[in-house]
Design a binder for these strands. Structure first.
Lengths: 200, 200, 200, 200
DNA sequence: TATGAATGAGTGTTCATTCAT
DNA sequence: GATGAATGAACACTCATTCAT
């Protein structure tokens, strides 16, 4: 009696492995974490792991790609209802939360990996485009509402805001200042000044 | 027959090794570069290398610590003569130059390493304090000159500016936008808005 | 609910597996081919395969044993009708055909395996005795007909002819000379001289 | 005080490793023998072995290439002094000796490997050309002396003789008839008939 | 009967570090 | 001081075989 393969099993196993890998990568870094560690963390054998991922590099890529923000619609709705600053500050909060949970080193690892691996970089660019585009869209809307400086280039401003969030997050992680609210406050203070309409 | 250790030779050898290590680490990352590669790049034997550094970790720490900006006095003088923005933009230019030369991944590596290694972190904090302190000092002076917004907290503003430089640098490296002048322009646009006195 | 084992199904499955294994072994060799490859080639699951063969070694043995020539009666009839040389040349042709189809490496594998595995060797000896015996029988008949040299020892001559076919086949495969007719011509030229009656 | 690297050490180590590998390959075959076995047999660590050979494939290739007969001049001299048959029989004896020492399976392995690996095949062809060329040269000389059939094509005859030696060797190894003198006798009986001048 | 996910010992290979010379 | 051969534990990955379903 042929048994139908459980199509969910594969997805479950991949998640189980990725969760374990995430934990290991966070603790030890992509290239210091071993497959044996990941297997142990996932309570799975090496053979089983390789049924779901062809190589360590594939797991690294999957982890890196998983790491995109997807506030999406919520972000745009908040921007409309409560203003751009409020929406940005929420997006920043979500991001800083990750740092507080120990993701700082992982994010640095992902950047390093992407900078050295053209293929990974290309695939990450696609997923990381999204939040910047959302920022730009919200900026344009806020400019239409005269909420912020209309002379700002929306795309560049979006890039700058995104870079600032990442920069502040990494810097505070480096300084072992892990309170996300303090980071949000710093970011808001910056964003307000940066975005506010110029005098006369 | 006992030979007195020549302190100059030692310093020369260490430099030779660190230069080689820097090249290797840039290319391949701390944990992917091998000691054999470093030895080959430095034209030195493994045995000789270990006379000057006790372990790979020690070389990594030395490289990380080496990586501090030391514009120092020049920065303050420029700030006084040409204004804070001009001085910041020069500091940013120096920094972005490094990214253009392929230091992006190395900087990400250093951050990742520091975030995972308390001891390294502590020692790096000391050397990285300097530029932020200089920024803060220059900010205070500019406030006294009424050149910038006097309501800004100098320390926080310095941190924000520093984080923004790093964030913009990493982000542009990630986007493979390697023109340092474009990065400087983005930073200046940001800094002007961020620092400029608020309307009434 | 107990199901009687269907002996025909079993035979069919064994054949299906052996055909797949043969293809894999030809391509990759006994010890480089994997059970997974064989399963894929046979469109069968690993579990099912192990129902019909207890181990990889058993499959190897079965493949090796399968590889016997069975021209049998046809050979003797041809020898009587058209002469020994013609019959031998046909036998050689059949054999060389296999080489042309890529069996050379497999035959070398079988020899290597048999030389290292006493048990396999013993069982192969039984099946490989047959063609040599047929050769010897045909030689004796040809001697009775004064078609060939009567002073030849039939058994030794049969062995020599068999060894020559194998030697020529392997050698030509090694030289990547895959035309079977050229091999047959070489063999016939040899057989004629070897077998022909000596000048007084 | 720089130590000059011993240029002989490398050669000695390579020999030591190849000797060990030969023993292991003979016993177990190219793909069943493990690097750990070879290391143990050579009394050397894995790291040391990989200083001298880049991979297992490289060792296999080296072993295969080592396996050429180099009777060379001796063969031609014997052919001139004692006749072609005597020279061939000595060449065959040398070859059969190897089989008696357990090289049969190794030779089969080499053939199988060469048949599957184009690159190895190409390099082996070069070294295996030599004995066949020597055979052909001696055959031409013997034809000039009217010692053997002048109508034989020297190149083809040389190929046939070489193939026959290999065929007889493998066949007798397979039959577990390891007496080299019996093999030589079989080969001589064959060679005499094959080469002798035809009646009118 | 058949499936295919799972096992885990084993594979070829690497590399930080040591030490006899 | 300097060399580079050597170590051997560790690494990423494989594969014959098993067994719950």
């Amino acid at each position: 009696m042929a048994r139908l393969p459980d199509p969910l099993l594969a997805a479950r196993r991949r998640r189980q492995i990725l969760d374990a890998a995430l934990a290991c990568f966070r603790r030890r870094g992509f290239h210091q974490a071993t497959m044996a560690e990941i297997c142990a963390e996932a309570n799975i054998s090496a053979g089983a792991l390789y049924r779901y991922f062809a190589s360590k590099a594939e797991i690294i890529a999957a982890i890196a790609e998983d790491h995109h923000d997807d506030g999406d619609l919520a972000f745009l709705r908040t921007a409309e209802a409560d203003g751009l600053i409020a929406a940005l500050s929420q997006a920043a909060r979500d991001f800083f939360q990750k740092f507080a949970e120990g993701d700082g080193a992982l994010i640095a690892d992902i950047i390093a990996e992407a900078l050295r691996d053209e293929a990974l970089s290309a695939s990450l660019l696609k997923t990381s485009e999204r939040p910047v585009k959302l920022f730009a869209q919200a900026i344009r809307a806020a400019q239409a509402r005269r909420e912020i400086d209309v002379t700002l280039d929306p795309k560049e401003a979006a890039e700058t805001l995104y870079a600032a969030i990442e920069g502040i997050g990494l810097r505070r992680a480096f300084l072992r200042q892990s309170d996300p609210e303090a980071a949000v406050a710093q970011f808001c203070s910056f964003a307000e000044r940066y975005l506010s309409p110029r005098h006369e």
